[in-house]
Design a protein around this nucleic acid. Structure first.
Length: 131
DNA sequence: ATCTTGACCGAAT
DNA sequence: TATTCGGCCAAGA
């Protein structure tokens, strides 16, 4: 058993709750949005213990579109949202969630993901270097 | 500080 | 396409 701190769990939940219906995000992307780039495995630790029904944990999939073995029914839940599978994997070309980033982020600005649900969005950080 | 675990990732084979 | 391997991170012991 791997434990998870309340803070980390809250960060991850906030991101997962903002994944739109019918779309999916990889563990790595969730980690990034939660402010811990590279912590994909740690996101998995949270999902493993995800009991909160308000968190659409079925929308979190592997980076290649495949699903975790131990999460039965994930496939079914995604199908119900219209997600199509190709070769046993989610068709990421069509379903991968692509959060809109501020244009400046592309040029290196520091941004932070705020909010949850439909109101979630990236915002510039006040300490972001001038561009 | 060091080690272990885990719904991970990505490149190499 | 599938498997292997090294590397990644958060928490606890």
């Amino acid at each position: 058993m791997t434990s998870v701190s309340a803070d980390w769990r809250a960060r991850v939940y906030a991101v997962v709750r903002s994944i739109p219906r019918g779309r999916v995000a990889s563990y790595g992307l969730v980690a990034m949005l939660a402010g811990r780039s590279g912590a994909a495995r740690a996101v998995g630790n949270v999902m493993l213990q995800c009991d909160d029904a308000s968190v659409p944990c079925h929308r979190v999939v592997h980076a290649d579109g495949s699903l975790a073995r131990s999460f039965a029914r994930q496939r079914e839940r995604l199908r119900r949202e219209g997600v199509r599978f190709v070769g046993g994997r989610v068709d990421l070309r069509e379903r991968l969630w692509a959060p809109r980033l501020p244009a400046a982020a592309t040029r290196g600005a520091r941004v932070v993901f705020r909010g949850s649900g439909g109101r979630s969005r990236w915002t510039m950080r006040k300490d972001s270097p001038a561009l």
